[in-house]
Structures are given as C-alpha cells and as structure tokens.
Design a protein around this nucleic acid. Structure first.
Length: 426
RNA sequence: GGAGGAGUGGCAGAGCUGGUUGAAUGCACCGGUCUUGAAAACCGGCGUGCGAGAAAUCGUACCGGGGGUUCGAAUCCCUCCUCCUCCGCCA
C-alpha cells in the first residue's frame, strides 16, 4: 500500500510507475480518485471531530451541573447532546464508508516501479541483467529430465504423493530425501555465515499477517485457507518472518535486520496444468530457505545488491548455470518496486527454471503492516522490507539432477558433499 | 475440552463503588543545573494514529479486538482473542 502523502506529492511518479506496469490510460484515473476520496475523508474527519468536541464539552458541563446540584439545568443540556450525537453518528458512518472505499482503492494500487524497471508486458520482456554459464554441462543425447531420473534412482515419487494427498505433493525418499535435507542445511549455513539469524516460524498464519505482506487481498485464492480456524498455510516464509515486526517502531541502530528461515511453502497454483509443470517444475508444496531484510530506506538498494550476490554464491557453489533477470513492468509483482529473478538452465528440459526471486518492496509492505523506525529527527518513518529465496528447493533439485547427471549417477557438487555424505546419487 | 483469574503507556504498576484521567507513582530514556569528568541530587521533557495550522499549538480517537448501556466508560454489560492457575487429554 502506498503512502497517501507520497501519492499526493508525487502523482507524476505514481502514474509513471503505473505506465511501466502497462496500465491502460483510462485506469490511471485511480490516482485522482484516491486523492478525491482522501479529500473527502479529511473533510468528514474535521466535521466529525468538531462535533465530537462539542458533545464532549457539553457532557463535562452536565457533569459539573450535577455535582453542584443543578440537576434540572443538566437535564436541559442533554437534549443538545442528543442532537450532536445523532449528527455525529451519521458522520461516523460516512467516515467509515469513505475510509473503506479509500482503503480498497489504495490496495488496488500497486507499488511504484523503480526507475530501472524496463518496460514490457510478459516474461519475454524481462531484461537479462547478468548470467553465469561456466557451469553449462555437456550432456549426452540420452540425458533424462528429472522426473525420469527420479524413477531411475528412487529420488522422489509423485504418484505416491498423489495417493496420499493429491497432485503436486511430492514424496522424497532415500537419497532423494537426504539430498533435500542437505540442500536445506547448506542454504541455512550459508545464510548464517552471511549474518542472517535463523528463524523457525509457524507454518500457518492469521489474516493480519497475510495482509501485512500483501498476500491478502491480492492473492487470496493462492493460499490454502483453513477456514475452521481462519488460518492460512504460508506460501513463503516471507509472511511470518516479515510480520515479526508488524506494528513495531524500531530504532535506527536496529538496522539492518537480517533473518532467514526454512519452511515448506504451500501454494494452490490453481489453473496451472500442462507439460511445463511436469515433475517438480510446479508443485503445491515445496521447501525453501528465505532471506528477509528490514532496512533503512537510504540503504535498501545496496542491500538488494548484497542479497543478489548471496544467491549468486549459492548457485555457483552448486555449479548450476544461471541468469539473473530484471523483471519488466508487466511481470513485476503488485507489492514490489524492483525484482530480480534467478533462473537456472536445465539442459535436459531445454528451458530456464525460476529458482529465486529477490525484491525490494520499499515501504509498500511496511506501510501495510506499520513497520516503522524512529529517525534522527525523532519522528517515525516507514522502514524498507526486502526478501529473496535462497533458495527454493524443488526446482533446484530438478536442475541439480538434470545438470549433474552422469552415466553412473547424479554427481553431488563438492560444496554439498559435506551435507549429503555421499558423492554420487545412484 | 471443563472451572477460575487476568489483559492499562518501553517496563513495572495504580485507577476499575462511571464525570476535566491519555491516564498516579516508580524504573528506563532524552535535555538541563551541579561536577575537571562521571555518579548522586535537583529541574524539565518523554505514547501512537488522524485532522486543522507556516509554526507554536489545538481538536479527535485509542487503557487486548469488536459491539452495547449512558449526557459521559479504562471503569458497567455482551462477544471474541490472548495469557496465567487447577482439572482432563496428549506428542
């Protein structure tokens, strides 16, 4: 959610940001509508406050009159208060409905795209920011996609997952389960070495948390919803971890707050079927280590760079060829100002797989969750929030299997061997 | 799951037989006096949001959340949430 005063002062930037996101001209009026609603809100608030002040004064007078035994005079004043009360009740309703509409409109307004965000509509328009292809493997013509390798080496079983739960819930077994666990520990240790505190958060969150990071209302249908208890299964550790600071006022010295956490992630992924989602390419439950930072606004873009480097280091140690994309306006998430996606090339599938998304949300999330800090000026300001996958397991597993396959089995990269305790998965 | 108790400012803790209490007091914190410096002592300040104002400041809302009673509620009523104690169940 954008800050109202920012929208008022920088309408041009807000509109430019919408254009980067390919908003049609007729929808740009949303900015004017928001300002009009806010004007209305302010005027109503003023009227209401004045009326309440009047009623409050009268009530005090009545109290004083009663105390001094002038009951009759006090009772006379009651009629006047009743009038003011009726009027204020109406205003209160007005105010509430204006606020509700304003809130709803404001939620519909996406974050202002960073100036570096390229124009474009689809993922085809994303800009290749950087790539690392040293690790491109030479694969024999007989190279198999990961779902075939999984069968060959008993790494994971999708049919069993379907039997137990439904499609898209993989079951890992044997060395596959060990590899999964090794990757999680490797990622956590790397994050720890980079100064991130490890968190094990709850895997279900309440609606306030889901709203804080922007899953509600924007992505309501994408989360699993436990209606009996009004809870949501987390789609990413970003949700509980960032919300740890919801409503807090930090000191400037608290920055940077660096947190990481492993959790399973649950996503309904409604409506996505077909060849491109085979195997582990898109599943309803996958494991991920997430890194989250809460930063001073002056430093958040440096921090974003540092997070990119961290993720790069992981992929290099796993010896996987990757590229970094700067998402274009059309592909940029609603809440993000700037996002870099990491994709790993899978030779066996002959396609890039998204394995990480690193974003700066600036104040968009912190405004929703009222995450502030006290500046040198003693006033409160919104902090910046950032997060990134470091890394998402299912697709890393897929590309690891495919890119490191040999006739003898799957070669485990050196950095990972200390965790798997085996060099070859066969 | 059952019975009882409780949720007040950064913390501790009054108020809870309704009336100028945004809220005593202590601690913490910030500024000042004193001091070579520090401590102590003393003086002053010290919540958040919204609105009005150039500003000083003023208005308004907030004492777990929501609703109600009343001219007026931190104080009374309803409801939900959370915590504590006891009982039950249990990895």
């Amino acid at each position: 959610m954008l800050v109202l005063s920012f929208i008022r002062e920088h309408q041009d930037r807000v509109i430019a940001g919408l254009k980067t996101r390919n908003y049609p001209d007729e929808e740009l009026a949303i900015v004017d509508r928001i300002i009009a609603l806010d004007d209305q809100r302010k005027a109503t608030q003023k009227q209401l406050d004045d009326l309440l002040a009047e009623g409050k004064q009268l009530s005090k007078q009545i109290g004083a009159l009663y105390k001094s035994g002038q009951r009759a005079e006090g009772d006379q004043l009651k009629a006047k208060v009743a009038e003011a009360k009726a009027a204020s009740g109406q205003l209160q309703e007005q105010l509430q409905s204006v606020k509700a509409e304003l809130e709803q409109t404001l939620l519909a307004l996406p974050n202002v795209a960073h100036p570096s965000v390229p124009a474009g509509n689809t993922d085809e328009d994303n800009e290749v920011y950087q790539d690392w292809t040293e690790a491109f493997p030479e694969l024999p013509a007989s190279a198999l996609p990961h779902w075939e390798l999984a069968k060959k080496y008993q790494i994971f079983d999708l049919e069993l997952g379907t039997k137990l739960t439904g499609s898209g819930f993989p079951l890992y077994r044997g060395k596959g389960a060990k590899l999964q666990r090794a990757l999680i520990n490797f990622f956590l240790d790397e994050a720890h070495a980079a100064g991130y505190e490890e968190i094990i958060p709850p895997h279900l969150v309440n609606a306030d948390s889901a709203r804080g990071t922007g899953q509600l209302p924007d992505k309501e249908g994408q989360m699993y919803h436990v209606t009996l208890d009004e809870l949501y299964l987390i789609p990413t550790a970003e949700v509980p971890i960032t919300n740890m600071y919801r409503g807090d006022i930090l000191a400037e010295g608290d920055f940077p707050i660096k947190l990481c956490g492993y959790t399973p992630c649950f996503r309904r992924e409604a409506g996505s079927y077909g060849a491109h989602v085979r195997g582990l390419n898109r599943v309803h439950q996958f494991d991920k280590v997430e890194i989250v930072q809460i930063e001073h606004p002056d430093r958040s873009y440096d921090t974003l760079q540092a997070m990119l480097q961290h993720v790069e280091g992981l992929l290099q140690k796993l010896e996987l060829p990757y590229r970094i994309l700067r998402l274009c306006g059309g592909d940029l998430g609603h809440t993000s100002a700037l996002t870099f996606d990491f994709e790993v090339y899978s030779l066996a599938q002959k396609r890039w797989l998204e394995v990480s998304s690193v974003s700066n949300f600036e104040t968009y999330q912190s405004n929703r969750m009222k995450l502030r800090y006290r500046g040198a000026d003693k006033k409160t300001h919104l902090a910046h929030t950032l997060n990134g996958s470091a890394l998402a397991l299912a697709r890393i597993m897929a590309s690891l299997l495919e890119n490191h396959q040999t006739p003898e089995g799957i070669r485990i990269p050196a950095a990972l061997q200390a965790y798997t305790r085996f060099e070859l998965l066969n």
